[in-house]
């Protein structure tokens, strides 16, 4: 283990998982936490069928405004989506802010207005919050934390550990948009990227999917660490193998081009408005149809299937007919020259 916290510990890949396992899970012993799903789900008392879901997330993105969104919109979507990924209908959110001395109030207002608009679109209320201000230089303009609570409908039981051999792997649309939209704004890289972040709330999409067919085993939004990291998390949690057809994974031409330019891999680029669903084979057609009718699922596609072979590993069938391991992201994905 490194002796200090590294930037790469925040990448969502293996180093992040090491930190969670070796520091947090060592001390926080709750079995609900140990499930390591996007949200914790529990039944208040054995008598009631009602299952509660709770999640929390912090947002420290730079730049705080990017094509297709801002840190405020992201703070709502991220938490709403984590609730949706356990099948919960999001009800209430908290919102707490750490502001750097000197942040223009006009920026703050623009961010808060954006949070309000996104909460309305997702049909949730922000019911409590907190604000702290730190000396200039002790925070990067603004940090936001949001927590969310929701109710999981009766009969819905979605978790990263539920995948079964024979299940189908569905992706709700093209990957890499958020990661590249943000990276294009980073100082030192300076390229103009024609597409916007895909940042969007997915709770209504998940509701439509559940209405079409309840046999959804896993749901996860591939944010930091990208599609490859999410698939590896699900394969490990469910102790199954996952096989993906590279040619079926939709990557927009501009994302593909920017990745070639920077020497990074679109399978590891962040998404903020996409989900991976692992569903029973019999439920595939109904769920695909429902997703494609929804504005955030127009380009939904089946990209692979679950197998009992090589549990914990994700195998990619390349466009040339070979197959290779699609590993989880190690540290952060840095542009390279060679």
């Amino acid at each position: 283990m490194a002796k200090e916290v590294l930037l790469a510990h925040g990448s969502g890949g293996k180093l992040t998982h090491d930190l969670i396992r070796n520091v947090f899970l060592k001390h926080f012993r709750s079995p609900l936490l140990a499930m390591r799903d996007d949200a914790a789900v529990w039944r208040h008392s054995s008598s009631t069928e009602v299952q509660w879901a709770l999640t929390t997330d912090s947002y420290v993105i730079q730049p705080i405004f990017f094509p297709g969104g801002d840190i405020g919109k992201l703070a709502i979507c991220g938490t709403v989506n984590d609730l949706a990924m356990v099948g919960a209908q999001p009800l209430y959110l908290t919102a707490s802010f750490i502001l750097e001395e000197g942040l223009p109030l006009s920026d703050l207002e623009q961010i808060v207005a954006s949070m309000a608009r996104t909460a309305d679109e997702a049909g949730v209320e922000i019911i409590t919050g907190d604000t702290k201000v730190v000396d200039r230089g002790n925070a990067d303009q603004i940090f936001i934390n949001t927590a969310g609570v929701g109710i999981v409908p009766k009969g819905v039981h979605i978790s990263g550990a539920n995948a079964q051999p024979g299940d189908v792997v569905i992706l709700s649309g093209p990957i890499g948009l958020h990661g590249l939209a943000v990276m294009s704004q980073r100082e030192g890289l300076r390229f103009s990227f024609p597409l916007h972040s895909d940042c969007a709330p997915l709770n209504s999409l998940v509701a439509a999917m559940l209405q079409a067919d309840m046999r959804i085993h896993c749901l996860r939004d591939p944010t930091r660490g990208g599609l490859a990291t999410t698939l590896n998390e699900l394969a490990a949690q469910s102790q199954v193998g996952i096989e993906i057809e590279e040619a079926r994974v939709p990557i927009p031409e501009s994302v593909h081009a920017a990745c070639e330019l920077l020497g990074i891999d679109a399978f590891y680029a962040a998404n903020e408005g996409k989900l991976v669903a692992i569903v029973a084979p019999e439920a595939e057609s109904a769920i695909l149809a429902a997703m494609r009718r929804h504005p955030h699922g127009r380009e939904t596609v089946t990209i692979g299937h679950v197998t009992a072979a090589h549990p914990g590993k994700v195998i990619l069938h390349t466009t040339l007919g070979a197959h290779r391991i699609l590993d989880m992201l190690a540290g952060a994905q840095l542009p390279r020259i060679c």
């Binding site: 490194a2 200090e4 916290v5 590294l6 930037l7 790469a8 030192g188 890289l189 300076r190 920077l262 020497g263 540290g331 840095l334 542009p335 390279r336 020259i337 060679c338």
Partner: peptide, 27 residues
Amino acid sequence: GDMMRVPGSNGTLQDAKAQGADVRMVY
């Protein structure tokens, strides 16, 4: 970016950055 994670005798440029050195990645 390639050089950030290469291990020298003790630590990497990424470690140096974490310890406060001003190391910046360029394209």
